[in-house]
Design a protein around this nucleic acid. Structure first.
Lengths: 327, 327
DNA sequence: CTGAAAGCGCTTACAG
DNA sequence: CTGAAAGCGCTTACAG
């Protein structure tokens, strides 16, 4: 048996297909009694509007494309969920594309989906700006966690929380601090490094920078080798994954956290709660980030002009920060 | 400027739209010289076939719907990626729907997307069988990691690896073992429990079962309280997340892993490598799981009959398993 | 190998 | 409030 259409319903009820169509797309234009009969037989026939047909007629697909670099990085799943749920609230579905962290083929991936979405949310921090702008030309696009001239943007600002963390460590006696930088091409990596660097300037603090490094557990762990014996008593890692690597590395060198060395991460992903001791970090309001992105995208799709938005991370002190060891 | 269509290209080249259409959908039917000219001007005009129009004409959307219970559970991101990449290889895109672990609204979510996908991959272990079958009626569907009568299925069998793990612990002197069961409604939870239980039968092993429990870090941690002083020397957790909770809980009770207690997880998610000590667990071939699901779905969509498939997990011994403590 | 034409299932001005 | 009709941009038998 074929799928029901507006025509089969119209025929059944001896009315026009236009009216059936309106009963779904503009219900207020249809007399209530008629609408009820339409809805009832639609229900009975298991009718669902054909999205392709609707899309062809309206030019809208009801789909949002979401490009992320690596769903396997624990920062992204909550973001994906937030975006997906916000989209559902707006009656849209999410087309997920994971670029496998290789910024180079992202323009191609965008090309693959741009013709079938109403808009794009791009959360790929490392893709080259020029390529990004070229790739999204003609599609309503919102960029997440990255500033791109000329494209609407919603970013999370962690500078304040990072400074707060630094201040906290300072008050606990830390005077030599390591900064593990994230990937050179990642916008957020630059911002976070800058925040710590600026804080250290003009204070009696020695800041040792390492990196840029890949934002991976192993890179964090490996970095510890270079730090042991440096006299540093606290480490800022680019993100939580690296921070967990650092914790593992410290433990391999028989250094206790936080007794011998404090560690601060960034993002507050699931891992931050599951390491022992649990990680002091900057909590990103991921739900808000995703929600704003979707909302902003709806505006852009509707042709409104939007202005960039900023959400702010907050400091969450847990078990990896403590007094500097006496030397 | 409006988007290019097959008509604008046809006009430009003074040929028929049919030919332009064929150049994209059945290139071998078009003379090479003509095809080249078409492709060239398509390129120049930035033409992309309108998916909605193609979908309306062919009845195919090129979309696969993927239903998962919780993208935030570390088991799923690698699965999602595997499915997405396999789909890309097959020229399909993935519509991701996360039910937020609430099995109850999953039929609704399926209803929301079933009209716009060519097929469905359902990886929701807890949804009621009857509701699931009703919800997917009429859409080609493949079920992952769960057996459902009458629906094609690809599951991961961890029984062998779990028995192997148990055997290993036995050889290291463990004679009292705890089994932390997963969610009662989850198919995999039943299977895993059964594997351990069957192994223990007829051996001089005392098996203590706890649960069903939610598959969460906190549940694992909380469970430790009930185990301390029980005399058990090894713990099988339903999955890695629970296992990590158990490790944290043991540490809070000043018990060393594996010196005082061994721990075995299941799945081998990212967390398993980032805990200290790293987790002994059963590695699920997630990529294969996802790849097979997509492949099977293509077959089902094509109307072929398929038979259920099974991939098998393998034991990965790391740092949380060792000799039973001498008592 | 190519073209003319019908059809996929909607939406939406337009007329009533 | 409702209907007839055109149109969205493709695909695909059919004829040549």
């Amino acid at each position: 048996m074929k799928r029901a259409t507006i025509y089969s319903i119209a025929q059944e009820l001896d009315i026009s297909a236009s009216t059936v169509s309106r009963a779904f797309s503009k219900p207020e234009l249809v007399k209530e009694s008629v609408r009820e009969r339409i809805l009832a037989t639609a229900q009975r026939l298991g009718y669902e509007p054909n999205r392709a047909a609707r899309g062809l007629a309206t030019g809208r697909t009801g789909l949002i494309g979401l490009l992320i670099p690596d769903i396997t990085n624990p920062f992204f799943p909550p973001l994906v969920r937030a975006i997906e749920q916000a989209a559902a609230g707006a009656g849209a579905e999410v087309l997920l594309v994971d670029s496998g962290a290789s910024g180079s083929n992202e323009p191609g991936l965008i090309g693959r989906i741009k013709a079938q979405v109403d808009g794009l949310i791009v959360a790929s921090p490392r893709m080259a700006t020029a390529g990004l702008k070229r790739a999204v030309a003609g599609v309503p696009t919102v960029v997440v966690n990255r500033a791109v001239q000329g494209l609407p943007t919603v970013v999370c600002d962690n500078s304040g929380a990072l400074r707060e963390a630094a201040e906290h460590l300072y008050s606990r006696g830390h005077r030599k601090v390591v900064l593990l930088r994230g990937p050179g091409a990642a916008w957020a990596a630059g911002r976070r490094a800058q925040a710590v660097r600026r804080w250290a300037e003009g204070r009696d603090v020695e800041l040792v920078e390492l990196g840029p490094l890949e934002a991976q557990f192993e890179d964090g762990r490996a970095a510890v080798g270079e730090l042991v014996g440096s006299g540093a008593t606290a480490i800022f890692a680019f993100d939580d994954l690296m921070a967990c690597g650092v914790i593992a590395g410290l433990s391999e060198h028989s250094l206790r956290v936080p007794a011998d060395c404090s560690v601060v991460g960034c993002d507050d992903v699931l891992l931050a709660r599951t390491v022992t001791p649990s990680l002091s970090t900057v909590t990103a309001p991921v739900e808000e980030l995703g929600g704003r992105a979707v909302e902003m995208l709806s505006r852009v799709v509707a042709g409104e002009t939007v202005k960039d938005e900023v959400v702010t991370g907050t400091l969450t002190l847990r078990g990896t920060t403590g007094d500097a060891p006496r030397s």
